[in-house]
Amino acid sequence: MSSSSGSNGSSVVVIGGTAGIGLAFARARAARGDEVVLTGRDAHRAGTVAKEIGARGIALDLSRPQEIGPALAGVERVDHLVLAGVARDRNTVAGYDVESALHLVTLKLVGYTEVVHTLAPRMPPTAESALVIFGGQAKERPYEGATTVATVNAGVTGMVRTLAAELAPVRVNAVHPGIVGDSPYWADKPAEVLEGYRAQTPTGRLARMRDVVDAVDLLLRNPAVNGVDLAVDGGWGWSPR
């Protein structure tokens, strides 16, 4: 099945689009009239979520990179590609979990790159084509248990540089969210925890999912933005006003 149905919108692929910010972005682009393909590890969930927002769902597990090419075989054209699939890995040096670390490293560095390897030939070779890679601000402000997360997110910066050089004129950027207060991961945290982070944020508010969606949209749509690591965190971690 082709990803193109003759619509006048862009062809958008969201890897990791069944929940959280990936889903919020996929929903926004589908509502705009773009043709959206979203992926998730579970075929039933991917299909169900895609149907709800007017997209197409594909089962794909980033931690199994050998299966990525076949899974994406039916996607013929990609104008915009978003790599948003993530995994939570709380890992310390003292209690290092090798399997958990390998899972995250494979998912985000090898899996992401294999998606690009598979889909880059299907992206029109112009500056209007673009991809955005999700990293995270743990690379700048690591916390206890961020041993692998911080390292992998720093690796995303290296991916942006090399992919921007290899794929030119197709553009490559990264978005690095900080604490996204209304995301599924953070929304259920105790109010006092979120307030503590809010107090450290110069804007006086935590980032929201819609803020990240807007940032991703900017990186994809502005043909002069390339090779950028964009933090979306309201300046969290700076000295408060």
Rank of each mutant, 00 (worst) to 15 (best):
A19G: 12
R122K: 00
G6Q: 12
P121C: 04
R56T: 00
E166Q: 10
V175P: 13
P70Q: 09
G47N: 01
A26P: 00
D233V: 02
A24V: 06
L23G: 07
K108I: 13
L38M: 08
G111V: 05
S100C: 14
I179M: 09
S2G: 13
E140R: 08
G54M: 08
A50Q: 04
S7Q: 07
V98E: 12
G22D: 05
A26I: 01
P202S: 13
I133F: 02
P190Y: 00
V228C: 12
V175W: 13
V160I: 05
R198H: 06
R64Y: 07
D188W: 10
K51P: 13
M1Q: 15
R27Y: 03
M123G: 01
D217Y: 11
T157L: 02
D61M: 05
D211V: 01
L72W: 01
G33A: 12
P240N: 15
S63G: 12
Y112F: 05
A50M: 07
R210W: 00
R122W: 00
T126Q: 10
D188M: 06
E140H: 09
Q137M: 14
W238C: 14
E114P: 09
S63C: 05
L119H: 04
S63H: 08
G9I: 00
S183L: 05
N222Q: 14
L230N: 11
T201N: 06
